[in-house]
Computed example of a mutant assay.
Amino acid sequence: MVGALLADIRAMAVDFRLRPGERINEVALAAKLNASRTPLREALNRLVSEGFVTFESGRGFFCRRYSVAEVQDLYQLRQAIERFAVERAVELASDNLISELRAFLERTAGEEGRTLEDVLAYDEYFHETIAGWSGNGEMLRTLRNVNARIRFFRWVDMQARRGRTQGEHREILDAIGNRQAGEAVALVDRHIVRRRDEIAEALKECHARLFVDEDFVHPAFKSAEELCA
């Protein structure tokens, strides 16, 4: 029961159906999810530890409000993980694994029939696959947590650059396949730093969509595992 609630509420926090800074009405949320208060509170407390929700004594639970500095911190953490991941991939990834990921890029290339949510899920799958090659399970779990926490911001940002992402991925994978660790790290840096430097504008756009645009439709995010299974 708690696991299902955790997944449902996490999804609501990721796509900001629970808006940043909004106090979570536990009674209403329990009724909406057909849950009792005890497992609901357990799920909310776990989401506090994951960074999606905050708790204020005497006031209750709130969907986390993100500042520019906090989102930049998450991007810096993502960059550090992915730098290490590509270095390890150069050492450890077999030619077969690299060929399989290259085939995945070919299968998912092109814009026709792809939603922005699809493109973002493919992007996460690419990076998480490389992180998985490192053999470090904790690092992969951390990357997945970071990706979920910045997913909405990346979804907004992706609208302006969706056509460039696949080409950048191919360059990173080619560097790994050629066993060029320095080149792979440099490409990852460019891939992520450019986005990190535009966080302030992305946050403004997110705020406008969530709090100003009355016709805004929340994205139907898919996990990389769901879309690519």
Score class of each variant (00 low, 15 high):
83 R>Y: 09
80 A>G: 15
79 Q>L: 15
111 E>T: 15
91 E>G: 04
64 R>T: 15
77 L>I: 12
66 Y>F: 08
80 A>R: 15
68 V>L: 11
97 L>T: 00
105 L>H: 07
114 R>Q: 11
113 G>M: 01
92 L>Q: 11
90 V>M: 02
113 G>P: 02
110 G>H: 07
69 A>H: 12
82 E>L: 03
94 S>I: 08
80 A>K: 12
94 S>G: 14
112 E>T: 10
122 Y>I: 04
66 Y>K: 00
101 L>Y: 00
113 G>T: 01
101 L>R: 01
111 E>K: 15
79 Q>I: 15
121 A>Y: 01
66 Y>R: 03
113 G>F: 00
63 C>Y: 04
93 A>H: 12
74 L>I: 03
86 V>W: 00
130 I>Y: 00
112 E>P: 01
65 R>T: 15
127 H>F: 10
117 E>C: 12
113 G>S: 05
117 E>V: 11
62 F>P: 06
84 F>H: 12
114 R>A: 07
70 E>N: 12
95 D>T: 13
60 G>F: 06
79 Q>M: 14
82 E>R: 02
95 D>H: 13
104 F>C: 11
119 V>Q: 06
67 S>M: 13
121 A>L: 00
72 Q>C: 11
60 G>D: 04
81 I>M: 09
64 R>S: 13
124 E>M: 09
78 R>T: 09
83 R>D: 10
64 R>V: 14
98 I>P: 12
81 I>R: 04
87 E>G: 07
86 V>Q: 03
130 I>V: 11
95 D>K: 10
64 R>G: 11
113 G>W: 02
76 Q>L: 08
109 A>W: 02
104 F>D: 12
93 A>Y: 09
125 Y>V: 04
128 E>A: 13
100 E>T: 06
82 E>H: 04
99 S>Q: 10
126 F>K: 03
106 E>T: 06
71 V>M: 07
100 E>Q: 11
110 G>R: 11
130 I>N: 01
125 Y>C: 05
93 A>R: 06
114 R>I: 01
114 R>M: 06
122 Y>Q: 05
105 L>Q: 07
122 Y>K: 02
106 E>R: 04
65 R>Q: 14
65 R>G: 14
77 L>V: 15
73 D>Y: 10
124 E>W: 02
126 F>Y: 02
82 E>P: 01
87 E>M: 07
96 N>K: 14
86 V>D: 01
110 G>E: 07
95 D>E: 14
90 V>T: 02
124 E>H: 10
109 A>C: 05
102 R>C: 04
61 F>D: 03
89 A>S: 08
65 R>P: 09
63 C>L: 09
92 L>A: 15
65 R>C: 10
105 L>R: 05
83 R>E: 14
106 E>S: 09
74 L>V: 03
70 E>G: 13
63 C>S: 13
89 A>D: 01
103 A>V: 05
118 D>W: 02
119 V>G: 05
121 A>N: 05
127 H>W: 08
127 H>P: 07
127 H>R: 08
107 R>K: 08
130 I>F: 00
72 Q>P: 03
66 Y>N: 01
95 D>Y: 12
64 R>F: 14
97 L>A: 08
111 E>P: 13
64 R>K: 15
60 G>W: 06
129 T>A: 03
120 L>Y: 06
66 Y>M: 06
89 A>N: 02
130 I>P: 00
105 L>D: 04
115 T>A: 12
96 N>L: 13
115 T>Y: 06
85 A>T: 12
121 A>S: 09
63 C>V: 08
120 L>D: 06
82 E>Y: 03
103 A>T: 04
